[in-house]
Amino acid sequence: MNIEQLDFYTQAILSLAALVGLTSFLMLGQGRLLRLIFVFAVQGFLLALTTAAAAYSLSNYHLYISAALTLVLKVILIPWMLRRQVLKMNMHRDVEALSNNTAVMLGGASLMLFSYYILHPIVQTSSLVMLNALAVSLSVMLLGMLLMISHRQAVAHVVGFMSIENGLFFAAIVATHGMPMVVELGVAFDVLVAAVLFGIFFLHIRTSIDSLDVDLLNRLSEVDK
């Protein structure tokens, strides 16, 4: 496949997929919370751009609504809420020392390969572009999980959680040109409620353990102490 022979829309989707994947890796190695949130907002913006590109090329109006939703939720509202929390709790100066960063990065790279590997059967029935898009979105999901495993701050966990949703949306837009409107609205509603609940949880966690380090949430376990 020669990329110059593809039409403009496909080229755009491929580049955006690559960029979205890149932002996931950037988040993975980021120890500063404010920068993490910024990269997350950039990922949201790329997602909104992808949606808008899809809407333009298909002249599908409901995708414009979905792009606007993504823009409002993932680029403005949720990053703003997280940023406010971080500033309020005075955590913007803390740098989280990420233990074995190299291993996490290598793990991330292998997750990406793994995504390509499991989705490979799809290529028999559709284009290589589709494989790329789906594999990138799956790896964004897996990298989001790895982010949650490797970071200890609750805020980073929320960013990981939301970036998993970003991966899902990317798959939904590129592979299927958006889910039916009612489903998309439902999912957006769930994301919004989840974001609000996370805000409430930060407060609860902070009042109960006086920190947002989730490693300190270790009272419940099966191991005898």
């Binding site: 609750a154 009042t207 109960s208 353990i209 989730v214 949430l217 419940l220």
Partner: peptide, 11 residues
């Protein structure tokens, strides 16, 4: 709102 219940809910 006990520490245990907040932990359980977060999990």
């Amino acid at each position: 709102r006990t520490p245990e219940s907040v932990e359980a809910a977060w999990k």
